[in-house]
Structure formats: structure tokens, C-alpha cells
């Protein structure tokens, strides 16, 4: 079954991973900007990173017939550094018109601090100023519940924000209701030890319906599985869910969400997706 991987940090993955993803049906993916594992020392590092996400990575993905989209930001793990945040935010607008950029992300909170919230607010304001969509990272473990509440409150403080253009990711059983009840789109991350397992993701979809939900591997440099979505497809089949339901979660829902960005175009899709056809790869 064709699928879309909506959250993968491919700069941390090998070419073999791209190959495995392509072999298991991945036709497109989106890569949010994230934390490098250590704090970057200058805004120049981010500029190089944004070039990697908008120039180099799409060409790597294209080798395997995978369309590569991306989201730009300073990640919540670095959000405490307000000075750096201001400098990085000032450099983002010139990248927003690049053909594979879907919006601002993954922004949100890490340890739910006041400064992280200020950096979150600045990113939301930037997204609204440029009419960009937003991808939200919710915090880890014990910080998730409180952080998700604070994030939703912050998003709702912007009067002209349309929740359908915001994906709140890494939802779990204790946060999904507040995300969906407030009209936001919702992502489930399939991780081996944290976030949700394949079985719990299937449980959540059974209990809350497949409406407005997608699943992702969030594969990065930590414990993660780049082919988690095809594994999820097997889990859903194991439970006798219909192919239509599975396809909705792994393919149609990501398309519906991404299609709100005018530059999203799935070249292999049978459906007509509104938007501009643009060349993705920058090959000199």
C-alpha cells in the first residue's frame, strides 16, 4: 500500500533507510526541523540546516522516487535561548517560498518554560504573518499533558488561527481528546519505547475514529523505526480493519492536511490535488 510519512528526520538516516521506505510504499514524506542532539552555536548553523532541508535532502529522497517536503523553525529544545530564537526567526522567511516548504515546524514546548512559550508565540506569529501551516511537537513523557494544554491555550490566543491548518503531533491517550475537541489535526508517533506502540495507535484509532489523524515514525538519530508506518499497516490488517480505513490514516489524511499548502503536489497520486505543480529537486 502506498503511504506518506508525515514526520521523519531524514538528515539523520541512511540511504538504506530511504530505500527501505521506498520499497515498503513510501511515496512522500515531510521532515520537520528539529534538535541536532546538542545546541547549535550560531544562527548560521540553522541557515545551513535549512539549506540542507530545502536543497540537499529533496535530491536524496528523489533518488528513490520519494517526494520530500519540510518544515522550518528553531526546535523547542533550543527555544529557551531567546536571543538565538530571534536571530533564527529572522532568517526563516527567505526560505518559506522554497518549493518543498510546507510551513513552520516542529514548534512547541519541551520543558514547558516561560521562555519556550515566548519562542512558541513568535513562531506562531511568523506562521500567521506568512499564511503558513504549523506542525506542533508536544513534549515528552511527564511534560506532555501539561505542555499540550499550554500549547493549545497559546495557539487559541491567536484569533485568526485556523486549527485545521495546525497538526499537533506525538499525541497519546491522555492528550488526544483535547487536541481533537479543539479542532486541531492530530498525529500519532510510533516509537519503540515512548509515545505509542503499533497496537496502541490502532487502539486509539478504533476508539477515536480515523478522522483527522495520521501516524508517523518520527525517525531520527534516536531509537526509532523508519518503516514504522508499514508495520502499522500490518497491525491494522492483523485486526481486520478495512483497507479503506488503513488507507485513510496512512495516505488520505496526510494528503488532506498537506494539501492546504499551495505548493504540495503528489505526483503519483491518482486524485487531483489542488495546488501548483513545481519542480522539487534543486539539481545544479
Amino acid at each position: 500500500m502506498d503511504y506518506i510519512e508525515p514526520h521523519a528526520h531524514m538528515i539523520s538516516r541512511t540511504t538504506d533507510d530511504y530505500q527501505q521506505m521506498a520499497l515498503t510504499g513510501c511515496v512522500a514524506l515531510s521532515e520537520p526541523a528539529f534538535w541536532a542532539g546538542w545546541d547549535r552555536q550560531s544562527a548560521d548553523s540553522f541557515e545551513d540546516y535549512f539549506r540542507q532541508l530545502t536543497e540537499f535532502e529533496p535530491t536524496r529522497a528523489a533518488q528513490f522516487g520519494i517526494q520530500h517536503y519540510t518544515w522550518l523553525c528553531l526546535n523547542p529544545k533550543e527555544g529557551e535561548n531567546r536571543d538565538m530564537a530571534r536571530q533564527v526567526l529572522a532568517r526563516i522567511p527567505k526560505f518559506l517560498q522554497r518549493p518543498n516548504v510546507l510551513g513552520i515546524g516542529e514548534i512547541g514546548l519541551n520543558r514547558n518554560t516561560l521562555r519556550e512559550m515566548e519562542t512558541l508565540r513568535d513562531h506562531i506569529a511568523l506562521a500567521l504573518e506568512h499564511g503558513s501551516m504549523i506542525l506542533i511537537h508536544t513534549p515528552h513523557l511527564e511534560d506532555k499533558y501539561k505542555g499540550t494544554k499550554l500549547i493549545i491555550r497559546t495557539l487559541q490566543s491567536f484569533q485568526n488561527l485556523d486549527p485545521r491548518r495546525v497538526m499537533i503531533d506525538h499525541a497519546e491517550e491522555h492528550t488526544i481528546e483535547m487536541i481533537r475537541d479543539n479542532g486541531f489535526r492530530c498525529g500519532l508517533t510510533l516509537y519503540p519505547n515512548t509515545k505509542v506502540s503499533l497496537a496502541r495507535a490502532a487502539d486509539i484509532i478504533e476508539m477515536h475514529s480515523a478522522e483527522g489523524i495520521y501516524v508517523n515514525s518520527a525517525c531520527d538519530w534516536g531509537f526509532s523505526v523508519p518503516v514504522a508506518i508499514p508495520q502499522f499497516i500490518l497491525e491494522m490488517r492483523r485486526r481486520k480493519h478495512s483497507e479503506a480505513t488503513i488507507r485513510k490514516v496512512v495516505y488520505e489524511n496526510p494528503i488532506a492536511f498537506f494539501s492546504q499548502a499551495s505548493n504540495f503536489y503528489l505526483s503519483r497520486a491518482c486524485e487531483s490535488v489542488p495546488g501548483n505543480v513545481k519542480e522539487l529537486a534543486y539539481v545544479d
Binding site: 529544545k77 529557551e80 519541551n110 520543558r111 514547558n112 518554560t113 516561560l114 521562555r115 519556550e116 512559550m117 513534549p139 515528552h140 513523557l141 511527564e142 511534560d143 506532555k144 499533558y145 501539561k146 494544554k149 499550554l150 497519546e172 491517550e173 491522555h174
Partner: peptide, 24 residues
């Protein structure tokens, strides 16, 4: 999950550490 979560409402004033530990 709620028993393993931070039940407080207000943001932290300062960053204490980067990582979460899984319980409050």
C-alpha cells in the same frame, strides 16, 4: 498516563534540564 504526568498548570520559570524522566 495521567498518574505519570506533571499535574501542575503554570509554565516553569526556568529550564531545569533538557530531558523528561517519565514521572513527575
Amino acid at each position: 498516563a495521567l498518574l505519570l504526568s506533571d499535574p501542575t498548570e503554570e509554565p516553569r520559570e526556568y529550564l531545569d534540564r533538557k530531558a523528561a524522566w517519565g514521572a513527575y
